[in-house]
Write a protein that binds this DNA or RNA. Sequence first.
DNA 1: GACCAGGTGGCCT
DNA 2: AGGCCACATGGT
Length: 304
Amino acid sequence: MDILFEDDFDLNKIADCGQCFRWEFQNGVYRFVYREYVLDIQQMPGLPDHFRVSCGAREWEDIWKNYFDMNRNYSKIRNRCTGTQLPLVLSSVPSDNGNRSASNQEISSHGGNACEVITAQTFLDRAVKAGTGIRILRQDPWEMLITFIISQRKNIPAIRKAVQLLAQTYGHPIGDTGSFSFPLPEDLRDVTAENLRELGLGYRAPYVRCAAQRVLDGRLNFDELQKLPDEELFSELMQVEGVGKKVANCVCLFGFSRTARSPVDVWISRAIDLCGGADPFPAFGDAAGIVQQYVFYFMKHPQR
DNA sequence: GACCAGGTGGCCT
DNA sequence: AGGCCACATGGT
């Protein structure tokens, strides 16, 4: 089935902005997995708004439209969040080191860093522009909890590998797609922390074991958590061993679609420093998490 | 072979 | 409340 998207939708950025670790890319086609569903999706060459998906209209409406957060207007949010007035804080950011002018190459080859001084708002505006096309996926809360527990002190390729291994080992094949489901708490009922260590999870293994146990014995109930306001949801998630502020906020944002939450990791922490030291994200209210995500992408792709 | 990665919990002032 | 530190492992 072919679809025309009117709003922001850049598959490269959606996949590569550090929110999702279960996508694959092959021959121009992206694959996403949600619970028992697998979607292959590709942008039609030369037609930026046209996409071809492997599912029919029914599955798109029932599953994937929600997964891709298609009921939210991202271009409107971008317009509302740029050009606003923040306190004037000057910061030096590395300037466009992706260009290939001879003089810049010379500077960087001698270890020097060309910098320019801009305001925090200019920095944020550039980040939003660079991240245009990102959408915050509505992923499975349990999968987000485990994934972001695993994510701590790992880089993104390592997270992808660990999550993939976890699915291959304790999930199950989905039809004949070659993809695997993410293991449910029941799938981990008889899996020990030692078993999980064998996957290379290191000190995170008992955290994953503990999270599964909390769901199995009813102390963690995702249907109940859905009903809680942001702050209470956040505190409940913080009760899980190995879940601190950052992971709890990631689960709120990516698993419960709480876009007012803005996780602070090492990259966002650097961005906050560039903005003068005060966290600028909460001021964006319900869009805080979305702006944060644009900035996270921008920090990792400064040349765009 | 350093250094770092979408951090957290515990212990110390 | 805030500053250190160990923690397991793999990517660059």
